[in-house]
Design a protein around this nucleic acid. Sequence first.
DNA 1: AAAGTGACGTGGT
DNA 2: TACCACGCCACTT
Length: 112
Amino acid sequence: MLPETPSFFERVYVVVRQIPYGKVTSYGAIANYLGAKQSSRLVGYAMNNSHGKDVPAHRVVNRKGLLTGKHHFEGTNLMQQLLESEGIVVVENQIQEFDKVFWNPSEELRNL
DNA sequence: AAAGTGACGTGGT
DNA sequence: TACCACGCCACTT
């Protein structure tokens, strides 16, 4: 396949790849960092298309800390297992202490 | 080329 | 306070 034209999706992937081990962020936070907080849905859509790429999509959840996209992973609990393997506690698809493990790209990458 | 899709977010009731 | 409905915009077909 030919290299894809630089797109909004790739911008999303770049940010997602910066998420540190053991941390998570939200679709809205990424969209906000990209200057398009109104396009949070696009971020989720980008994750959908990230299958097969080295993008830690499991570290991206919605604003409530809920694993809304786990249905798109293989198996039934793969997303949760990946998070738990990084030390994140998940109960009923809900990340515990979400604000503790939340990683805000707008603050951490403001100099990037 | 046009229309539909979607792993969200916010505001109003 | 919690739930429902609308808006949003790049990508795919």
